[in-house]
């Protein structure tokens, strides 16, 4: 199921995040890239160079919007100005779907600019799903929510993270951007089997996948997006597309950004798994078990 209603029935292949250090390379060399993901907030402005570059990119490439400050899990209502600017950008980019995070980050009108972890409670399910529905109705395009990496768990949680994710997307009737690096990071920080997570997620709702690198510290792992993708994350990726089918995949690289070609080459490693999965799906019998993958 490469295309579904949650990604606007598109088949987007492997994309990379559009980042400022690569602007010049992309505009002058025009490399072959399936699609670019943009951070919506960087372009929710009234004018200037970022929008000019975006328009040049839009002339030649497919673009998908990814947000970092909608905070679906915040109790406070979204800022109307935020929504107005976001919709204007959606109209500009014609993004087939829009993603943001399953987290909270603002309260009482004050913004932390961080992706703070949700308490996995029934109240949070209800609040978050209602807010996603509201945003989806306003924007009139499919919304997909991304699982975040986390470093803390709450005493009040009443379910696992993957149960929470499934409940929210079911009630909101939205898609999932499954970040397999985030799953791995959280699994190491909280001590769960990452394959339990991947195996439990509503596969039919997965609209997009994120892959990225992370950094290991003495007592925890941090989601830094400043390394190549590590092998355990590729394993989770392989298992995800085995369940969901070849799905639009994006490599995130946000810090210590290497050359465009290096980032692109790292992203294209996903094709190894996408092609293998596509071949197995078309084959009559499939025996495709990854190490550590709970069945």
């Amino acid at each position: 199921m490469p295309a579904n209603r949650f990604n606007g029935f598109t088949e987007y292949g492997v994309g990379i995040g559009l980042r400022i250090p690569h602007y010049q390379h992309i505009l002058t060399r025009k490399p072959l890239v399936d699609w670019f993901e943009i951070i919506s907030e960087n372009y929710m402005i009234d004018g200037g160079r970022p929008l000019q570059v975006l328009d040049q990119i839009l002339d030649q490439y497919k673009v998908v919007q990814h947000g970092v400050s909608m905070y679906f899990g915040s109790v406070s209502d979204p800022d109307p100005e935020h929504l107005r600017r976001l919709k204007r950008l959606v109209n500009r980019t014609k993004t087939p779907w829009l993603s943001d995070h399953l987290c909270w980050g603002s309260v009482d009108g004050r913004y932390t600019h961080d992706l703070l972890p949700m308490p996995y409670t029934w109240e949070a399910v209800k609040v978050t799903a209602e807010r996603i529905r509201g945003v989806q109705d306003f924007l009139e395009i499919p919304v997909v929510v991304e699982n975040v990496s986390s470093y803390a768990e709450y005493h009040v949680s009443e379910m696992t993270e993957w149960e929470f994710l499934n409940e929210v997307v079911e009630r909101a009737d939205c898609g999932i951007l499954l970040d397999v690096n985030n799953i791995y990071v959280s699994s190491q920080n909280h001590g769960f089997d990452p394959f339990s997570y991947v195996n439990a997620v509503s596969a039919e709702r997965i609209a997009q996948i994120h892959i990225a690198g992370h950094s290991k510290f003495e007592k925890y792992i941090l989601d830094t997006h400043d390394h190549p993708v590590l092998e355990p994350v590729w394993q989770l990726y392989a298992r995800t597309i085995e369940r969901a089918g070849p799905t639009a995949t994006l490599l995130e690289w946000d810090d210590n950004i290497p050359t465009f070609d290096e980032v692109h080459a790292e992203a294209l490693k996903a094709n190894r798994f996408l092609h293998a999965t596509a071949a197995k799906i078309s084959a009559p019998v499939s025996e495709f078990v990854f190490q550590g993958a709970a069945q």
Partner: peptide, 12 residues
């Protein structure tokens, strides 16, 4: 006040 709002205020 909702439990979620109280948690978010305390955490923030």
């Amino acid at each position: 006040m909702s439990d979620l709002l109280e948690l978010q205020r305390r955490f923030a």
